[in-house]
Every structure is written in C-alpha cells, then in structure tokens.
Design a protein around this nucleic acid. Sequence first.
DNA 1: GCAGCGGTTGCAACATATGCAACGGAGGGA
DNA 2: TCCCTCCGTTGCATATGTTGCAACCGCTGC
Lengths: 250, 250
Amino acid sequence: MSQTVQRALRIIELFAERPRSLGEIADDLGVHKSTASRLVQTLEHAGFARPVDGRYTIGFRMVAIAQHAVEQLDLHPVAHPHLVRLGDRYGHTVHLAQLVDDEIVYVTKVDGRGALRMRSRVGQPVDPHTSGVGKAILAHLDEPARERFLGRLTYPRHTETSITGPAEFRAELARIAERGWAEDDGEFEDFVSCVAVPVRDARGRVVGAVSITALRALAPLERLREHLPELTATCAAISRDLGWTGEDRP
Amino acid sequence: MSQTVQRALRIIELFAERPRSLGEIADDLGVHKSTASRLVQTLEHAGFARPVDGRYTIGFRMVAIAQHAVEQLDLHPVAHPHLVRLGDRYGHTVHLAQLVDDEIVYVTKVDGRGALRMRSRVGQPVDPHTSGVGKAILAHLDEPARERFLGRLTYPRHTETSITGPAEFRAELARIAERGWAEDDGEFEDFVSCVAVPVRDARGRVVGAVSITALRALAPLERLREHLPELTATCAAISRDLGWTGEDRP
DNA sequence: GCAGCGGTTGCAACATATGCAACGGAGGGA
DNA sequence: TCCCTCCGTTGCATATGTTGCAACCGCTGC
C-alpha cells in the first residue's frame, strides 16, 4: 500500500469536513508543510481540490466522477423515474437503498417539499437496525446473507425507540418478513418516521428497498402507512423493470 | 507533484467511465501490474475503490464525500427547497448552477417526471454558450469577469442552433441582460430547450442561475416561457434568502 | 519597520514506490 | 485429465521519487 496515496486520500477526507489550510493539513498528516503542499498541488491539478478564500477544499472533478459512479449502479437508472413520481405525489422524502456486497447504501434521494432536509446522503452506508430500508432489506434477505449482517451489528442506540439488541431485532425482522414492509418509528432521529418496501431483481432476490420518510409532526406513522399501497406498487414496478416476473427463482 | 498520487487519481478517472481490471489499469498507466495492484489496494482500503465481479470500480466513500462537498457550497442549502417546489410544480427538470471562481458548475438538479433524464450532472462544468444557466449568469456578470469568460470560450457547435462566434454571443448576452432571462433553444441538445434566470447574493452580484428544462416535444420554448413569472419569483426568493434587498451595492 | 501567517522551491538524503519473477487460483478448451 | 490464459498477490533488490530542511516570496496587521 502506498503511503503517499494514503496521505492524499486522507487530505480529501479532511476536505469533506471543511476547507483546510496547508498548515492544518500538514499537522494532521504529521508531515512537513512542503510535503502537504506538493500533495495538494497534485490533487488540484487533477481537479480533486480547489482553492477557496485562502484554504483548500474538494474540487468539482471529484464531485462529477462520484455522480457518474452513482448512475452506474444497476438500480439507479431503473428506479429513478419511479421515485421521482412517488416523491412528487406526496411531497415526502423518498430514499432508495441498494444492497452492495456486504453493505446497504443510499443510492437515490428525492427530497420532500418541506424546508427541512433529512441528514441522509447518497453514498452513505445505512445502519440496518435504525432505518426502514435497512430492515426491509434484511428481513427479506436469504438466511446466510442476513446472518452475515447480523453478526456485524453493534446496535448503537440513537433514540428512545431504537432497537438495541439482536433478539429484539430478529423478532422485528420476522414481523417485517411476514407483512412485507418495514417501518421506522423515530428510531434513528426522534422526529422522523418512515415506511419501506423491498425491491427484487429478475431472480426474485432482494436487491434494495424504497422508503417514504417524513417528519413525525407532519405525517405520523399512521399517515405514512396509508401510502403503503402506492409504495408497494412502485417497488413492484421497479422489480418488473428489473425483469422480475413475480416468482422467486433462487 | 506526486507521481504516485497522480497515478492513483488517474485510476479513479478510469473507474468513472466503467469498472476496470487490474490489467487494464496497469496498461493505461504504463506501469507494472503489481504497481497497479498496490495502488488499487490503497484506494480500496480508504473506500475509494471496491471490487465488483472481477473488476474494480469507485467506492462509496468517495461518493459520500462528494455529496458532502456539494452540500457545503453556499448556494445549495439555501436554494434547494425552492428548487424542489419549482420542480414539483411543473414536473420539468430544474437546474441550479453556481459561479465558482472562473467556472460555472451544476450544483443541484431536480429531475422531471418524465422517464428521460438530462445528461447534465452535479459537479459538471457548464458550457456557457450553449446553456441557459451559463448565458443567464454571463449576461448579468460584471464586465471584467464576463470578459475573462469570453476570452476562454471556443464555441464548439453542438446543434443547428448553437451559437458559434463571439459577436453573435455578445449580442445574445446583451439581449438577455436587458430582458433579465435567458433561453436555450436546442442549442446543446437538439431535443431540449430551457429558460433560465440569474440569482444574486446579498451584494447584488450574480452568483448563479436557475433553469427549467424540458423536452421540446413535451414543452416547446413558448410553453416554458409561460413559467417565467414563477421562475423569476423563485430566483427572487432565493436571492432574498441570501440577503439581497433588491438594490445592487457593488 | 517587523512578526506572523499563507504557500512555494532547490537540494541532499533516504524512505518508498517500482519492476521483476514466482506463485496461487479460477476458468476454458482440447 | 492436462495445459493454457487471465485474474491478482507477494518478497526482494534497485533506484526512483518523495521527503524534510531551510530559504524564499507575498500579504496582513501591529
């Protein structure tokens, strides 16, 4: 592994938080200012960094590439128009999460009409035990894959209603698997709740999930549940576009 | 400038196009397979690369960071809710472009309801002479900054209606400056047109522009023009949120 | 005027990235 | 079954490329 590249990537990580001066960067890396300077120059040259009022921050080349990468994900192009329509219909925030290897990642986010925005972010890994999409996916996953996930979970508590242990979580997953949809009742953020439904690929395997999220004050869980038929229809339409005929053939 | 880092960033550029095998990467860089391997390992370790069916591609850490970077841009958080409402209203695609240094960059994109998506991409630099947002910004920019842009333009022709020379472009900008809004009549892509209006900051300086884009077949320019009052109101609202009182104080 | 911050550059020293060759594993054909 | 190719990884000697140093420029504020 390349030390130089590690340092350069570390600089990008620093930029993610906020713009940085060379001095800060050098301090953080534990290298000389000149070394930091040369690394930043390289990043800047490639469009991965740019100067902004006396500091440096992330360049747009990196943003454009990342955007491109998201659009390459198999679920994204198929699901996107469906999600826009869904978000449009109720004005709530719509998320699409995709199962990628041993991770669940937000792939699309259609913001709701309200002034507030959810803290989620495309590219961000999902915490399975406190998110609707995470639960919807895990509940409908095949046994071994689910166990791999469960083995890695640590159940950090975010709010009053957070699930905090494996037994409780397994019970919840069983419930979800039975009824076909998941919900999040303020388990990650006190003031938001959501409902989520899984998406299947041509082989009937769960590959992702779509959720409708809203402020509890604006639309409590009972209200969100009313959108379940629509949400389920949307997921069915996506699955159909992916080639699913309705039968599992694993 | 660091050769090693340059190579690593080059690898990321390769990933942007499509997933790559180690062999391809090594060939492209002109280095030994083992060297490429170690670079990719470093990228993977930091979440900037990930394996996908026998190849490598961009990792999600990079996507999440890029997303974060966009949200740091000053215009984004202020403008976003307005844009969602605007997109919601007509179901057309809405773009926000921001002036950053000597570049105009797409900062937000709210996709329309149709199945087709525009080729634009957040983080992508705008071609000023063939885009509504580019023209709207340039037309309302102060003299020296505008001249800096004009000096760099090469006027590549994209379609029949593309503007192809400085004289023609200056005339168009003058027209736009007078009436306060710009349009793109299939000048970048044959089948899409748009209208655009500039956004001003607290000092009355142009800092960006918002456009409504649609397929010509779906909504020809005459129809889009009908949305100008709404678009202008949206831009005024954003400018107000940025602290603009209505008077220029340069 | 000077001190403190921002960043850059030339140079010598050596840490580190490099290419090589050998290896293990996964397919595909004969 | 064997052989072949393509995938990627690893240990090692080499020398290339990176590093820290110190000097430097330019700006701001005292």
